[in-house]
């Protein structure tokens, strides 16, 4: 299978840092009261988005979740448009009409974060149907959480995708909590990957804290999909290091205790060490990388702050193509 080259490994590493730093800066701004609405941070889960999306090109599609910033960054969305959207500005990816939970960019194959748990799963199957009917070689990846695996949309979407052998990969980011409900309280199966059996498709569980492992497993599933061999289900075991939303301490449901264990396996320092061992990155290059990302973030935040807000004249546009 696709071996992890130095180039790809460095790209994945950079993507993880880009996600992490985006989230950290967004949280700071949110807590400073600069961003409206609410925010679901994916800190801790970066390896999944980075490892999967390393296989995707612009014409490949993803559907995402309420915790979707990582998927967006990994799919190549720009900081400027993302921050502008979080700031509810006209220059945002959705002109300030979507916000954190609805960032989308059809040019880069992002069919939207989604405020409805599991909502993107049938849509991903449909996008894969469109791709199949158009004779394209592109694939769709649908990200969702362990909570979504109990939605009817999960069953209907995967069943249809399996039935029609659609080019889609279902990636369950199992972070052990559906909002505040621990997984043992919301499903009886131990391995969500086992649910693939019910649809006659491959299902595989992978360590979601290890981007190299995610990359490998995703590579197999995406190759299968591109070859017309149908969908797969990947369960990536991971952990969000923060509460369900920014402001949720996670103390009420045992999340805080769980996180202590998982933080020792933080994918970014761990993968950094892996790269260092191979001499693929050193302190100088690492500093350069982090400086570059921080400068980009500064610039993007500045851009967002200075961008115009949508006005009342914008409220009633974009509802219909024509009326």
């Amino acid at each position: 299978m696709a071996a992890l080259t130095k180039k790809t490994a460095l790209r994945i590493y950079e993507t993880m840092i880009r996600i992490r730093r985006f989230e950290v800066r967004a949280i700071e701004l949110f807590q400073a009261g600069e961003l409206p609405g609410f925010l679901h941070a994916c800190i801790g889960q970066e390896a999944v988005a980075a490892g999967v999306c390393a296989h995707l090109g612009d014409a490949d599609q993803i559907t995402s979740t309420h915790r979707g910033h990582g998927h967006m960054v990994a799919k190549g969305l720009k900081y400027e448009g993302m921050f502008a959207e979080l700031y509810a500005r006209s220059t945002g990816y959705c002109k300030g009409k979507g916000g954190s939970m609805h960032i989308a960019d059809q040019d880069l194959g992002v069919l939207g974060a989604n405020g409805i748990v599991g909502g993107g799963i049938p849509i991903a199957a449909g996008a894969a149907l469109g791709i199949q009917l158009q004779g394209r070689k592109d694939v769709v990846v649908s990200f969702f959480g362990d909570g979504a695996s109990n939605e009817g949309a999960f069953h209907e979407g995967i069943n249809i995708a399996a039935l029609w052998r659609l080019p889609v990969v279902f990636v369950c980011e199992n972070n052990g909590f559906a909002e505040s409900t621990p997984r043992s309280n919301h499903q009886t199966v131990r391995d969500i990957a086992d649910r693939a059996k019910a649809y006659g498709i491959p299902g595989v569980a992978v360590d979601g804290m290890d981007p190299a492992a995610v990359f490998e497993v995703a590579g197999e599933a995406i190759t299968r999909a591109r070859k017309g061999q149908g969908p797969s289900l990947i369960e990536a075991r991971t952990m969000r290091f923060l509460g369900h939303y920014v402001g949720d301490p996670g103390t009420a449901y045992g999340h805080d205790r769980e996180v202590v264990k998982w933080k020792k396996r933080d994918p970014i320092p761990a993968f950094g060490k892996f790269l260092e061992k191979r001499k693929w990155i050193g302190p100088k290059k690492e500093d350069e990388l982090r400086d570059r990302i921080e400068r980009e973030l500064d610039k993007a935040i500045d851009f967002a702050r200075k961008s115009p807000e949508p006005g009342p004249q914008d409220a009633m546009t974009d509802i219909y193509a024509s009326i």
Binding site: Q61, Q106, L111, G119, I121, P122, I123, A124, A125, G126, A127, A128, L129, G130, I131, L133, Q134, V140, G152, A153, H155, E156, G157, N159, I160, L163, W164
Partner: peptide, 28 residues
């Protein structure tokens, strides 16, 4: 059968598939 597709009894799956295909530029 490609253009006249029987589906499972899955109404939200049908509508989701319809939307996804439309997003790709089809007219389902």
């Amino acid at each position: 059968k490609e253009r006249v597709r029987n589906t499972p009894i899955s109404e939200q799956g049908i509508v989701g598939a319809t939307l996804g295909a439309a997003l790709m530029g089809m007219r389902p």
